[in-house]
Design a protein around this nucleic acid. Structure first.
Length: 301
DNA sequence: AAGCGCCGCAACCGCCATCTG
DNA sequence: GCAGATGGCGGTTGCGGCGCT
């Protein structure tokens, strides 16, 4: 590659992971939890750098990871989220339970980019979108790394919430992702993070729009990233034209659908994409959460 | 069957934010 | 306030598989 190895230490293995290495890593993390990636390889008996271990775990070994077979609905959502968020793959991945940022990034670069281009659309990478401000330093001071873990745990907690409510039907995805070392959701409730940016909650969504409507909407302006102004962006975002609700997914998606419908906010174009929960208050809280998410983004943009 | 080129994906790298001492 | 450690993210690379000639 011509680059220097990420780890100064020589003698570390690189390249594809063997099943034995996977097993070692999985076993270690199951026993000791995530974290301490630097020291993890040594403790786990792996000749890998910590970063490599983390990547392998996050993208492949973590429970609940879905591999391949990205559905049209997921694809549609990716396109739409990319229109909204740009190349913030981790955020996009957060909306797709079981999908990793790496996978989505690859899928975008290999499939969707071509698809969009072949459709006469030139989706710009939205690099010129103003980056959302990073999460401010913790106000408590001592929050520290815990807060970052909390940030992650919020997602996990949300996933858990969903899975608890719908019986963990998310294909082992969002609900299945349970960072062993993350704080309990209880703790999240007691110590809500004071982050400015709400991490998107991985949810399973139905496609609110036809394929063409997504691509069309992209073509019609979402990709016009040169503007980049907040209002413009907002207009672009809400310029998606909703179509009639598609039938809810079968099986694992039976509990997810689309709420709203452009009555209030047009997050992701015309309707909230929300888990259809059984508890009405949960619905409203999620609506509020998404409102916050979207409002935050509008402000940031 | 062999050679070649393309494509997809796993993995790596650099950079940045944050925490800790 | 500073430096080192750690974790996370996005961009990029390179290998292997596959199809075409």
């Amino acid at each position: 590659m011509g680059r220097s190895p990420c780890c100064s230490k020589v003698g570390l293995r690189r390249g594809p992971w063997s099943t034995k290495e996977d097993t070692l890593l999985s076993n270690y993390i199951q026993q000791h939890g995530e974290g301490q990636w630097r020291s993890l390889p040594k403790k786990a008996g792996l000749l890998r750098c910590g970063k490599s271990c983390r990547l392998r775990w996050m993208n492949y070994l973590r429970p609940g990871i879905k591999r391949g077979n990205i559905s049209e609905d997921e694809e549609d959502l990716i396109v739409r989220l990319h229109g909204l968020l740009g190349n913030r793959w981790s955020l996009i991945a957060g909306r797709l339970p079981g999908r990793t940022d790496n996978e989505i990034k690859n899928y975008w670069n290999t499939h969707l980019l071509k698809k969009l281009k072949s459709a006469g659309i030139n989706p710009k990478p939205h690099k010129d979108l103003p980056k959302p401000p990073k999460v401010k330093k913790s106000e408590g001071g001592a929050a520290g790394k815990k807060q970052r873990k909390q940030k992650k745990a919020v997602v996990a907690a949300d996933n858990e919430k969903i899975s608890n409510q719908d019986g963990s039907k998310l294909g082992g995805g969002g609900g299945g992702e349970e960072p062993p070392a993350s704080k309990s959701s209880e703790e999240q409730v007691n110590n809500p993070p004071k982050t400015k940016v709400y991490l998107p909650k991985p949810i399973r969504v139905s496609s609110v729009f036809s394929r063409t409507s997504s691509y069309d909407s992209l073509a019609s302006g979402t990709s016009s990233s040169d503007g980049g102004e907040a209002a413009e962006k907002a207009v672009e975002v809400v310029s998606y034209v909703p179509v009639e609700w598609p039938p809810l997914f079968e099986l694992e998606d039976t509990n997810y659908g689309v709420c709203g419908g452009g009555e209030e906010d047009d997050f992701l174009g015309g309707g909230y994409i929300l888990p259809v929960l059984h508890q009405s208050d949960s619905i409203s809280s999620d609506v509020n959460m998404l409102e916050k998410v979207y409002d935050e983004y509008l402000q940031l943009l």
